[in-house]
Design a protein around this nucleic acid. Structure first.
Lengths: 246, 246
DNA sequence: CGAGGGTTTGAAGTGCATCAAATAGTGTGG
DNA sequence: CCACACTATTTGATGCACTTCAAACCCTCG
């Protein structure tokens, strides 16, 4: 096994999704994989293209989105370390259900869908893991839709910030760093950059957070939680929605 | 096998999701099932309750939703004939991820989740069918989110109407009947009843549809398609998103 | 007929989008 | 290290879409 293949093997092994896979399988798929570095703005694949590969993000950020004929974009999600994308095309006649583009310089692993398909069909435990992962993602998307319906712009930002924190350590001061530029955060939350800017200011007034560039600080998350989670159907530590696959 | 069990068996057999299941399995789960008739407004289960059963709708309509502490509801989806619901709780620690309530008098089949879980674990083909079903539903939800972002109220109504039509027969006059009351359609589309009423009027002006109570008629779908699908990332016959499971 | 829900209409307010312009930040070459 | 170019972000002004509150209307059904 080459050194790169070994690296990929180790990465996959650390993912919960692949925890039920044999070492044999991981070795085989790692050998067929490619690890590449892509600059910001690189298109991984395009909506409705023939799908032969899925991707694992090693570092950086990748947005998945669809667009209308006149160029309007709807951002579906934005992924980083340890997330996989494009794998659902297996169940969609091998057609990518969205486009994917790097939004930061990123390291990506390209993996063949055919082997994934094989593994699902032959390893029931893996199929189950895949189902769990899909169900979790689905719940997350349900919640996204709910947020668009019930929360206003400042609340959506607050909720987004909360999901960036390590929610295990409650109480005490917290520093949050926005992972990509504000324009992108805005579209991720379904609002215009101008709205984002104003909404963040409002959130600052309402909850006493400190905003310096892309760093946000607060003495305690309490006020943020009270303000943001008021219009949500989930209780605060809503972190159990974490997913690996997309 | 009792007569009821036979009826249920036949219903399940007609669902694509169960097409890879043995007759044995269908017989077994049918015998453990209950067919009931519920009036409008009956709660099937509540968000975060312990989940032991999933449901198949035989007739009528069931809404699935979540609500905030102050009673604000977010409708996740509304299901009818041949749709199943509550089955994803298998992958969510046997906790229902939403509440479910009949919105019309409905015939429902209650089925044990334990047997479904068994079947997934022992029948790879069924696991695959389940995955396909989840992927399809997921794509549908993605599109829902997109619609909320890119389409305005009249367009969302137009799109909803189009999905109620038999899109195989293009051209020619069409009659569409709203399946449940307008207030519910409104919340299904994420708008207020008043907005729905006004938006429908606007849609009438823009596309020349005829509205009589809950019946809508038009000489041809062309104008409706042109108007509604303008702000969408999918081409018109977008019916391939049909799902059985929820 | 009268009660009560569903639906429509009107008037007023709010939130977000849009357009335009100013400002802050970042990286470049000199 | 500075000036410039270019992009990201903020701010202001205005408009539109949707919501909210209130009231009328319309059905259906007892």
């Amino acid at each position: 096994m080459t050194e790169t293949a070994q690296t990929i093997h180790d990465m996959l092994q650390r993912l919960e999704l692949f925890s039920s896979c044999s070492d044999d399988f991981l070795t085989k798929i790692s050998s067929a994989a490619h690890l590449t570095t892509k600059p910001k703005g690189h298109m991984l694949f395009i909506h409705e293209d023939q799908a032969d590969y899925f991707y694992l993000v090693k570092s950086g950020w990748v947005k998945i989105f669809r667009e209308t004929l006149d160029g309007d974009q709807a951002i579906v999600d934005i992924f980083t370390n340890g997330h996989i994308l494009g794998e659902t095309s297996i169940f969609q006649d091998d057609i990518y259900p969205y486009s994917a583009e790097t939004v930061e310089p990123s390291e990506l692993v390209q993996l063949p869908l055919s082997m994934l398909k094989d593994e699902i069909e032959t390893n029931p435990k893996f199929a189950m893991a895949m189902l769990s992962s899909m169900a979790r993602y689905r719940k997350q998307q349900d919640q996204e839709l709910e947020h668009r319906t019930l929360q206003n712009a400042p609340q959506r930002i607050g909720c987004f910030l909360l999901r960036l924190t390590d929610q295990s350590q409650s109480g005490g001061p917290v520093r949050i760093h926005l992972p990509y530029d504000k324009t992108l955060v805005a579209s991720r939350l379904g609002m215009q950059p101008e709205t984002f800017s104003r909404a963040l200011k409002k959130l600052k007034q309402e909850t006493g957070i400190e905003v310096k560039g892309s760093t946000i600080e607060t003495d305690s998350l309490d006020r943020l939680v009270r303000y943001s989670c008021a219009a949500c159907t989930s209780e605060f530590p809503c972190k159990d929605l974490e997913t690996e696959s997309g």
